[in-house]
Structures are given as C-alpha cells and as structure tokens.
Design a protein around this nucleic acid. Sequence first.
DNA 1: CGGCAGGCGGTTA
DNA 2: TAACCGCCTGCC
Length: 311
Amino acid sequence: MSKEYFITYKRNAAHAPVYGYAPVGDIDLRETFECGQCFRWRALNDEGTSYVGVAGGHAARIDYDKKEKHIRITEMGAHTKPTDSTEFWTEYLDLDRDYAAIKRKLSRGDDVMKTAIAAGKGIRILKQDLWETIVSFIISQNNNIPRIKGCIEKLSALYGEPIELAGTEKNKAEEKAILDEVGLASNALPTSKVLASLKESDLAPVRLGYRARYLIETAKAVEGEGLPETFDDLNKLCGVGPKVANCIGLFGLGKMDSFPIDVWVRRVMSRMYDFDEGDIKGMQAFAEAKFGDLGGFAQQYLFYYIRELEG
DNA sequence: CGGCAGGCGGTTA
DNA sequence: TAACCGCCTGCC
C-alpha cells in the first residue's frame, strides 16, 4: 500500500489556519513539478519539499511537511476569477484520483513500467488551464526548458493580467520578494483576447522566434472559434502538431489516454521497449494497445525516468 | 564556428 | 502521406 498524505489549505488574506483537508495518494512535489508538464513552478530548497508557482491566475507556495505528511498550500495571490481555492487546487493537483491503483495496473506484468514508476512514483498529472497549456506547449516546441521558462515569464510580465497578492502590505512585499527571487512574474499568462490583438513585433522582447506568429494565429483562432475540445481541433491550431496536441490534451483537457512522443520518449521507448527511434507510429500504436486510458500516466513515468537517467 | 533543444509548417515526389 | 528542410534563439 502506498503512503497516505494529507493536504491542508491556508490563505494569507484571512490568516485562516486551515479551510480544507483532503486525503490524497502519493505525491512528490519535485517529481510533479519537474516531470515536464509545467513551467511556472520553482523549488525553494534543495530537498524539493517547497515550491512556489503560478497557475490559472493563482500564485501559491506549497510545502511538504515530512513529519506530518502534509502538503500545505499557501495562496499568495488572490485569483482574478472567482474560483473556490479548495476546488481549484484539488482539481489542479488531481487529488481525487487514486494513483496507487494506476501504478498497480501499469506495473502488472511490465518490468519496464515497474522501473519507470519507481523513479517517479510521486508524479501527479496536473490539470491545467486549457489556454495556458496551449500557450505553454506552443512555446515548448524545438526549444529547451530554461528558455521556455524565460519566454513564459517575459510574456506574462509584459501582457498578462497582474495577480493581486494577498494579505497585509507586509505579506504582499514578502510574496513579491519570493516570486522575484525565483524569477516568476506576478502575472497570469496573457489571455487569447490580448494575444490576438498583438502584432509579431509586439512580441519581439519575449524572444519567441518563429513561435510568436504561431501564438498570435492560435489566439485569433480561439477568439473566433472558441477553445478546442478534441485532438482534431487542437491539431488545426497553428503551431500545434501531434506532439504538442497530445501534451495539451493530456495536461489541459484531461484526456488521460494521450501519449505525447518527444525525443525523450523516443529515446526511452527504444532503450526499454526495443523500438527503432524513428518509429513514432509504432510507439503510438503500442501505447494505445498496452496503456490504453492510462497512456498519459505511462508517458510521464517513462519521461521522468529517462530524464533522471540521461537528462 | 556548427550542433542542438521536449516539433512544426511548407514543399516536394 | 511520407520524407525532407529551414527555422528564432541562446548556449555549448
């Protein structure tokens, strides 16, 4: 049996101690925030037990208490939308899902998955805001992680709605200092409406390269036709091919059968399942047949494993 | 200097 | 529809 952790929520604004309390399965902050699914969380210590991040208009600090086996979420920023924070974080961290059961299923009769899961058994797949996921993964293409992170912060700082920090003036100053220290903007990612109104030259300071055009085109499409709902919708967006569409489907639409294949997944599939590295179609078919509805979880365990090994 | 990084769009056969 | 190619940028 996996260990039980608990989550508590606290808001600076009200100085309320705890207003939510929910049992969750295995969770490891480092594995969750550094398995490639998100770009706006930063470690505050070497142990990886404390992170600060921005998501869906919320800025928060999350601490893992080893002794109490709690994850404590401290909201730093009042959300711009009237979202219930307990609900928001529960959905974002996928707390209602039984990861122990998923890991058992994937491990059954599969030594490769057993090995991969052992490396990242505290991964949770974040349910992220759809538009933010689209923007993030368009930026991610043919790019490296430090630069992706930099682009996202610059973009947010320039054109994103400011997040109103919570609490007393002293609280706000402390919160801002923490965000500054780790290089996070206290802004949400820009909306599709804002991005659709920009010219490519407006985005020059963000250093997106040729992705600037993709973002603006996609923002215009979303403004005109609404947000995508299916894999086919996603694939029609400018700058969204099969890999990016699978990432958006998995992290933004909750399509847990998605199996994004990037260079790392190709690498791990060739090493561990003996595929030819160029055989993307074969890998996709294999994942569909073998992992089915759990493809996204399998992909994250495999990705994290190979990154730990060779990244 | 060329190679490369969590691919994609466009062109060609 | 599959195979190629060029691509912004920053870092090695």
